[in-house]
Amino acid sequence: MIEIRVHGRGGQGSVTAAELLGFAAHSDGKYAQAFPSFGSERMGAPVQAFVRISDKPIRIRSQVYKPNYVIVQDPTLLEVSNVLDGLQENGLLLINSKKKATELGINTKARVKTIPAMEIALKVIGRPIMNTTLLGAFAAATGEISLEGIRKAIQHKFPGSVGEKNIAAVLKAFDFIKKESV
């Protein structure tokens, strides 16, 4: 089983990102569970959402404490939240940032990757909502979910042209990470 924690601010679609990740894994034929950090979320306040993906049915219902992957939607959270909390050493921290990972000065043994998701989202979707873009980067960096799974998840959640734009952003982010890895 792998566990993912998404950090964002209220209104950035962190819970939706978790839902889409779970949906994608489910359509890839895996078991999945996605849930928010339960609370009274307010616009702009730090929020978290969680995903579990497994080959077996998922029974555990506690929050995620030792994530394999952490996705950070908003780089300003690096200063106010401990996004590294519990992150496994062989895991990955994926951050929406224009900066290079090495420029962020993050002290962790885990891999750190950055993606200018905000810029991609603004250019491709036309709105500053980078959750779906980050999913493309996540798929490229980890291989835990397929592009086809993300496509299905987005089409299910956002049918029509909104979904298509989001899928275009996903592909762009996927390519960005892939090219970087070469």
Partner: peptide, 12 residues
């Protein structure tokens, strides 16, 4: 059914 733990969780 447990609030949030079940109601707000996405599952198959």
């Amino acid at each position: 059914m447990d609030g949030f733990v079940l109601t707000h969780s996405f599952d198959p």
